[in-house]
């Protein structure tokens, strides 16, 4: 089965990340809607997963033994769609013509019935990690060896269901599950430290029995190293990131949590990402 047949070096993956950021800004600008900040913060995480780590086959998106991915923070779909299109799950022209539009395969939030390559619908925060637990449990009960990866937001960790899922994954020994937390330190209303402070995050996950790693979420090599650490428990990689990463005036600017750039801002962003 063909899986990531093309090998990318880390510098190549870094170049890929920059290219994807341009696509993401373009998508949101074209759609006049979408969540830029949290899309830009998780680009390296997606690159590490989809260009190195995960066994997927864009020509056979429903391959039963593929690794699964759940974007629990579903509002940051632009980065996810950009990766899926670049991998060849669907035509990349859809990114600029269909995202958030009527009759589209690219809904505002991921839809597994509409978008090739999307393994699980998401959007309502807190649910995605539960579904990832179900996938990982299913692999075990069906005797399959695929792995399940899930990206959650740090704001999303406010949800009680997340902690139910964390408890569940440990109790059911889901060592085939890896969670990446996009710790970009902002949520809808502002800084997570001011809306609902969740620190110390590492201790919280560790106390639930998970293997905890903490990395610079914009360092692809560090993410890959953590992904490949063996663990007999479910694993979480807390990725320290910068919301809006890559565009100076979007970084840690709450305006770009869900705001669309003006024409001038768009042009400036594309210059910075050139």
């Amino acid at each position: 089965m063909s899986v990531n047949s093309e090998y990318f070096t880390v510098p190549e993956l870094e170049a890929k990340a920059k290219e994807l950021r341009r696509t993401v800004v373009n998508m949101v600008y074209q759609a006049k809607s979408g969540h830029l900040g949290g899309s830009l913060s998780m680009v390296e995480m997606l690159v590490a997963l989809y260009y190195r780590q995960m066994r997927v086959d864009p020509k056979n998106p429903k391959w039963e033994d593929r690794d699964r991915f759940v974007l629990s923070k579903g509002h940051t779909a632009p980065a996810y769609y950009a990766v899926l299109a670049d991998k060849g799950f669907f035509d990349r022209s859809a990114l600029l013509t269909q995202y958030r539009q009527l009759n589209s395969i690219l809904q505002g939030h991921p839809d597994c019935k509409k978008t090739p390559g999307v393994d699980m619908s998401s959007g309502s925060l807190g649910i995605g990690l539960s579904t990832a637990c179900g996938m990982a449990l299913g692999a075990k009960r069906l005797g399959k060896n695929f792995r399940v990866y899930c990206i959650v937001g740090d704001g999303e960790l406010n949800e009680g269901e997340i902690w139910e899922a964390i408890m569940f994954a440990h109790f059911h020994r889901l060592d085939n599950l890896t969670v990446l937390v996009d710790k970009n330190k902002m949520q809808n209303d502002g800084l997570t430290s001011e809306v609902m402070d969740m620190d110390e995050l590492d201790d919280k996950w560790r106390s639930f029995g998970w293997s905890v790693y903490h990395v610079d979420g914009h360092n692809i090599q560090d993410i890959l190293t953590a992904l490949n650490q063996p663990s007999d428990q479910p694993k979480v990689i807390i990725c320290d990131t910068i919301k809006g990463k890559g565009v100076s005036f979007m970084e840690m600017n709450i305006k770009f949590h869900g705001g669309c750039p003006t024409k001038e801002e768009y042009e400036q962003a594309m210059k910075e990402l050139a």
Binding site: G126, S130, G134, M135, L137, G138, L142, E161, A165, F168
Partner: peptide, 23 residues
Amino acid sequence: FVSGGISEANLVGVAAGLASVGM
């Protein structure tokens, strides 16, 4: 059989994940 503990929201999500992989 899956014991979910007293956490119904999670259990529904787990069921969705199980269904998505063919159970």
